[in-house]
Design a binder for these strands. Structure first.
Lengths: 252, 252
DNA sequence: CTGGTCAACTGTTTGGACCAGCTCTTGCCA
DNA sequence: TGGCAAGAGCTGGTCCAAACAGTTGACCAG
């Protein structure tokens, strides 16, 4: 008996209208439907097309602008930017799930690869820079991780919390923010099939060993262990024989 | 003879009002004036306080929401998030220059450190994955870099363009987006005093050598050379004796 | 004390109007 | 005929006013 008029119409859900407009326009740009340098329809036109008020369109445009997907000129038209040259890492937050399912695995792989790279250096820096208290907390959390249920999802949550301590311990704000971007995005639990990471998540001893190295300020070994552990979830880390001669950073 | 009425009033410049509101609110959150979990003033109240229309406030709020600095509840109040746990890497784009000059050098250092980490791995992957054409272009661009004027600013521009080729050649979209975030943000020419990077920028031969290793698909040496080259601009890379026991990721 | 009801918040959406700046057409002048 | 300048008609930027839709909390009946 709910007055679900909009739902019945089938046009738009109860997600805020501006968010829906944002998503649609973003996908038009990411898929190349609006090419770099191409002009977006005028705000008044977009409002008419989507059947919403112009203010909703403006809020969506503001978000696109901050994502550096478009450039806005008063008096002139709003144009699409070349997102491969301008968009930031936060783009991986929303992309998974919205575009072709074919391209998503690639994004997830890239995100895991980046996680391995940053995680290893963060472990090294954490061993070097983190205070006694922070390093002890990492050891304690490693034990808590070991006590986590056999459920892979639970392990995944505990794993993220543990790595957050390490990244925080590295003292590098850029690492921490990038970690956030990855966790909120491509590496979010929903996106990565946990069984792909089972080799990493189930090895409780490897986590303990890494924590111990950090505790002992053994930066070199901490980095090595972290790189090995995180690399397990990245297909083709050790056996680097594959060389694809195709275009770099495949069009999405 | 410009009709600079707003400028004379001293209230707000000709920067879009919503951008100014965004900046002010963002700084309130980043500085902790509005603590994590704390509520922002109501939109109607903010509009009254800043003397702008409510729509300007809403556009700013939408941007804060996308930056994952706030959480919005219809019916309830808008609350500040713990940005250290939620904000993404794009935060480094606007932060330099807006907050205390004391904390900015730290952000720049972190960004350079991250650049070294990702750049080294990108060079490795580029040597492994990039096609013949892409690798040849990197060699060519290294020569173009060598011909760049002795001006450090010009060298910096050419350097960014060259590294972009390498990151693109790595085939990792996450690396490319993170590179964009850093270039648009903390590592932007205006932020980093170029003389701090002179040891890196002036060594044309090191650039050439790295390009050659990538050309020859020598991944290991490419990574090593890249790490060494990029590490020159990061104070305290080799002589890691300093260990600060203070809190990790200092509050901004 | 418990339960539901309602008023007073909050953000969401709408409509219309006007200002400011860019662009392209139009039409005058040399 | 060529060139340039005025202006009409776009574009985004800002504002006002009102209604809609959830949440919260106080208040009152049981």
């Amino acid at each position: 008996m709910t007055s679900s008029r909009a739902a019945e119409a089938g046009a738009l859900r109860r997600e805020p209208l501006s968010d829906q407009v944002f998503t649609r326009l973003r996908d038009l740009i990411l898929t190349g439907a609006i090419p770099p340098g191409g002009a977006l329809p005028a705000e008044r036109e977009l409002a008419a097309d989507y059947g919403v008020n112009r203010h909703a369109v403006r809020e969506a445009v503001k978000r696109l602008q901050q994502s550096r997907l478009i450039e806005v000129f008063q008096g002139g038209r709003t144009r699409a930017l070349d997102w491969r040259r301008t968009a930031g890492l936060d783009l991986v937050v929303d992309v998974p799930g919205t575009l072709d399912a074919v391209t998503v695995p690639g994004v997830v792989h890239d995100a895991l690869e980046m996680r391995a790279c940053i995680g290893a250096d963060a472990a090294r820096l954490c061993a070097l820079r983190a205070g006694d208290e922070a390093r002890a907390e990492i050891v304690a959390q490693a034990e808590a991780f070991a006590r986590s249920g056999p459920d892979l999802t639970d392990l995944g949550v505990a794993d993220v919390a543990w790595w957050r301590l390490i990244v925080e311990g590295s003292g590098n704000l850029a690492y921490l923010l990038a970690f956030n971007s990855l966790v909120h995005g491509a590496i979010a639990m929903e996106q990565v099939p946990v069984d792909l990471r089972s080799a990493e998540l189930l090895d409780v001893e490897a986590h303990r060993a890494l924590a111990e190295r950090i505790e002992r300020r053994d930066a070199a070994q901490a980095e090595r262990l972290a790189r090995e552990l995180l690399g397990r979830s990245v297909p083709g880390t050790a056996d680097q024989a594959t060389t694809n001669d195709q275009a770099a950073v495949a069009p999405i």
